[in-house]
Each structure stands twice: as structure tokens, then as C-alpha cells.
Nucleic acid binder design. Structure first.
Lengths: 220, 220
DNA sequence: TAAATTACTGACCGGTTAGTCAGTAATTCG
DNA sequence: CGAATTACTGACTAACCGGTCAGTAATTTA
């Protein structure tokens, strides 16, 4: 926009794909997949639509890249935590769940969950990929953490596939909810903001149910 | 289709709106709002697209009508239950939650939740209407049930706005999940089918956390 | 500096679909 | 039964958008 440099265009082969993916992520979350126009994605990334097609074969390929770039890299970190905290199952589970909230749930990445839920029927291949690459892996991680607790006699021996859903769904739903309703509805705060009370009560409920010998109620 | 009655068309002014709304609901759930074509809605309701526009001003008006017809009538029934079971808070809460699952979660109506989550950003007015007409009312009902339990000293005095979410989200998420993933992903059963185990473990976890004096563990 | 390479552009095309409306046929009225 | 009414139809249009490609300009090479 500066007067002496009116229409200088840039060549930045390396940066384009991730910039386009980031622009696509934010628009997909805002408007959903079908309602997002590729012209708009390109504009937000500061290029033209033609450039987008240099790097992605189709709208669906872009969608898949968004998932790939955003979520998959996070797992190594989470799985490392499992090893270091084997001996304190309660703390392990707590950290895994809080970790998901901080790295995914409260960030833009949480929007991917909403996106998948919204578009799974129209793009079964993408949903299937996401299921394999993200959900299965995450649920396995949660399940192992709970298993460890049961093996050591710290958690009650309930049905693990059910437990990991019961434990995770309140967080997942909160994230999905905030990514879809924020701004539409009075009284729905921004995705980042969840009260301390929610987590206190959440862990209280979870561990009352999970632990073989619940600790005494915390003084109030 | 009978040979002597090849193209008899019918005039049924009263039945059309609800038939169209039902057709729209099923298609919206299958394909999402944006991907659903009005020709298809009309065809499924056995009329032409022109007829659809006799009864609904726009695609968005149709969307709103779907919500109105589907969900709102259910509340009277649920609120009646509150009165009749005031004296047994645990049973009251259990029946309310199971009632929601049977009347909404496991039926097509559960798809509306998914729909709203998917489209809230694109149709803030519709989302807002749904929030007022459905969510606020339902959460108030849940909250009152929990309040009763706390007042009578049966439930622990935790934060009620948080509790009602913690208690409801596992069911809501399950419904949303099944309405979006069923058929796309191996191992995701149809919306109606949830194992006994899920509910047993679910209520076990909830009431372990809620009750002041949990009953003894059920024998296994 | 001239030629070759290639990242990038944006006008364009073809298919799709929300919304319209002049016409048709079922029903009601006189 | 004929006329008037109205529920219903479906061909049409205007707009929109995913995807293409001939051309442009930045960069590298000789």
C-alpha cells in the first residue's frame, strides 16, 4: 500500500502451503467447509486463487492438509507424558486431559473437531482419515492411562472404552460448543475462557467416580 | 403409479408444511444445511420446489421451522416429570437424562443438535433462537433437578451450572457423534444402539460424584 | 544484461442451485 | 354444469463458485 511500492508481488514457495492451510482453518471454522469460498481462503493468505491450486489439488485436499498440519504433530508430546508419569495415574490422567485442553480444546485446533462433526457425512474419506489419524490414537492414549490406573489398583475396574468417553466428552463438548456458538449467543464466552470452577468440579466428579479410595473432600 | 391413475396430484394444504419440515430434517441431518438442495427436499416430501416456496419464504425459514416443530413440543412432558418425582432426586435426574436420550438423543431429533453446532456461525439468528427456545429451557430443567437434590441434602453442593454440563455433555456428545459419524467410520454403530454398559458406567460415575453418601458398589 | 525458469495472477468457463412466475389442474361455489 | 378459486407445477434465470490456463513478473542462470 505504500505509494512507492504499489503492487509488488512476492515469491515465497516455502511459506505458502502453511499460510494457506492456516487461512483455510480459520475460515472453515467460521463458516464450515461448504460455505467457505476458495477465493476467500486465497485472499486471507494474501495470494490469488490460482496460487492455491499450485499447492493443493482440490478443496478436499486442502481440508485434509489442514488436519494433517494442525493435529497430528501434537501426539508425540502427549505420548511422552505417558511414560514419565506412569507411577501416579491420577496425576497422569489429569495432565493428559489438561494438556489436550491447552493444546487443542482452547485453541483454534479445537475448531477441527467441530469441523469434522459438521462435515463427516459429506466427506466420509476425510472423516475416516481423521478418525484413524487422530481419534483412534487419542482414545488409545486415554485408554492406556486409565488401564495403568486400574492395573495399579488406583482406579476402579470399570469398562475402559466407556470410561475414556465419559472422561473426555465433557472437554470435547465444551470445545466444540465454544467453537460453534461463541459470538452467536449471549453468555457464551470466547473459546479460551473457562472458569476455574469448571475444571475443579470436573476433576472432582471424575476422580470421585474413578478412584478406588477417593481422597477426603477438599476443604471449602 | 397405477395404470389408471397416472399423474393424479393432490391438494393437501394442511399436511404440506410438516411433511416438508420432516423431509428437510432428514436431509439436513444427512448432508448438512448448505449441501441440501431444495429440489431434493421437495421431492422427498412428494411435491415440487414451487410448493415449498408457498409455505416457506426461504431456505433459512425452513431451517427454523424444522427446529420449531421438532424439539419445542417435548418440553411440557419433561417438565411434568419434575413435579412427580420431587422426592427422589436421584431417580428424578436419572429419568430426565434417560428421557432425553429416548426422546431426542437416540432419535432423528438428536441430529438437530449436530445441525446447530455445524451451522451456528452461518445462521446466528437461527442459533440464537434455538438457544433461547431449547438450550436455555433444557438447562434450566436440569439445573432445577440438581438443585432439588442439593436442597434435600442428597447431592453434594457443587457448582450447579458446571454440574449440569458435566452430567449432560456425555449424552449430548454421544448423540452428536453418532449423528455425524454413523456410516462413515467403521466401528461406529447406528444412533439408536448404545450398550447397556455405557449407561451403567455413566450413571455410576455421575452418582458417585453427585451423591453425598454413595450407595455401596453394585456386586459384579 | 539477456535468456530461461517458475511462482504467481485473474479473467474465464461450466455446472450447480436458490428463488420466480406464468400456467395447470384439483376443488369449491353459484 | 360452468365459473371462480387456489394448491400446485416445472421451466427458467441470475448468481455463485470450484477449477483452469494463458499470460505476467520475479528470480536465477549464463
Amino acid at each position: 500500500m505504500s505509494p512507492n511500492d504499489p503492487i509488488r508481488r512476492q515469491r515465497r514457495k516455502e511459506a505458502r502451503p502453511s499460510e494457506l492451510a492456516a487461512a483455510a482453518l480459520s475460515l472453515f471454522i467460521e463458516k464450515g467447509f461448504a460455505a467457505t469460498r476458495l477465493d476467500e481462503v486465497a485472499a486471507r493468505a494474501g495470494v490469488s486463487k490460482g496460487t492455491l491450486y499450485l499447492y493443493f489439488d482440490s478443496k478436499e485436499a486442502l481440508f485434509k492438509a489442514v488436519i494433517e498440519e494442525g493435529v497430528v504433530p501434537l501426539f508425540d508430546e502427549m505420548e511422552a507424558k505417558l511414560e514419565t508419569l506412569k507411577d501416579d495415574p491420577e496425576r497422569l490422567l489429569r495432565e493428559i486431559l489438561l494438556g489436550w485442553w491447552e493444546k487443542v480444546g482452547m485453541t483454534d485446533l479445537g475448531g477441527i473437531s467441530k469441523l469434522i462433526i459438521a462435515e463427516a457425512r459429506n466427506f466420509p474419506e476425510v472423516a475416516s482419515y481423521h478418525h484413524e489419524a487422530v481419534i483412534v490414537r487419542w482414545m488409545a492414549l486415554l485408554g492406556r492411562a486409565i488401564d495403568i490406573g486400574i492395573e495399579r489398583g488406583v482406579f476402579r475396574p470399570l469398562d475402559v472404552p466407556t470410561l475414556r468417553q465419559l472422561v473426555f466428552f465433557p472437554l470435547l463438548m465444551l470445545s466444540v460448543w465454544k467453537n460453534s456458538m461463541a459470538g452467536c449467543v449471549a453468555g457464551c464466552p470466547a473459546p479460551g475462557l473457562v472458569s476455574e470452577t469448571y475444571f475443579d468440579t470436573y476433576f472432582d466428579m471424575i476422580f470421585r467416580g474413578l478412584l478406588v479410595a477417593p481422597r477426603e473432600e477438599s476443604p471449602r
